[in-house]
């Protein structure tokens, strides 16, 4: 029982520690975060947290109202005008890795009072956030700029080492 409690507390602490940036909280922050939800197709992504903190300064640009400055978006202000910072700031704390599973959809249907019905899944949250900003700020936007594809990934995309052999033949044939 105790062990479980300790485990839980430890887990929560780790989550909190792993996500709260020092610039915002004056706490120790991970300079680098490893994102591994797509390991089936890509190598782990080492997200340079420190670099992004130095570049953007305001945590709330990426982290909703949960940390940094309070939310300004009029849609969010309607409810979150006075919302305080929360303990969980990591994306995966709220954004599900399986947003379209039968259970998730059923739960959504039953929780009719839940306002955030249209909450993106974890992968969607990452990419919409990162890609949206990268497009605006001129950051890298190609898939392989952040993700190094592994063997299974190559096979899925018929690319790299799994590139179609016919294609090379065709490309050569076009010249004639």
């Amino acid at each position: 029982m105790y062990a479980m409690k300790n485990w839980l507390i430890g887990g929560i602490l780790m989550l909190a520690l792993s996500a709260v940036p020092p610039v915002c909280q004056g706490m120790n922050m991970p300079d680098s975060i490893t994102l591994d939800s797509l390991v089936q197709l890509y190598d782990k992504v080492k997200f340079d947290h420190a670099k992004h903190i130095n570049l953007i300064k305001d945590c709330a640009v990426c982290h909703h109202h949960t940390t940094g400055t309070l939310v300004e978006d009029p849609n969010c202000v309607r409810c979150h005008k006075n919302s305080s910072e929360t303990k969980i700031v990591a994306c995966k704390g709220c954004h599900s890795a399986q947003p379209f599973s039968a259970e998730t959809l059923r739960e959504k249907r039953q929780g009719t009072k839940l306002y955030h019905q249209d909450k993106p899944g974890l992968k969607g949250a990452y990419h919409l956030n990162c890609m949206g900003c990268h497009t605006k700020m001129g950051g890298p936007t190609g898939c392989l700029d952040c993700h190094k594809r592994n063997k299974a990934g190559d096979a899925l995309y018929n690319s790299g080492k799994s590139a179609p052999k016919k294609a090379q033949g065709n490309a050569a044939g076009h010249g004639h």
């Binding site: 947003p99 379209f100 959809l105 959504k108 249907r109 019905q117 249209d118 993106p120 899944g121 992968k123 969607g124 949250a125 990419h127 919409l128 890609m131 898939c143």
Partner: peptide, 12 residues
């Protein structure tokens, strides 16, 4: 990756 596609009950 971008959740362009949202799967669910059509009515929802």
């Amino acid at each position: 990756p971008q959740e362009v596609l949202t799967f669910g009950y059509r009515k929802d």
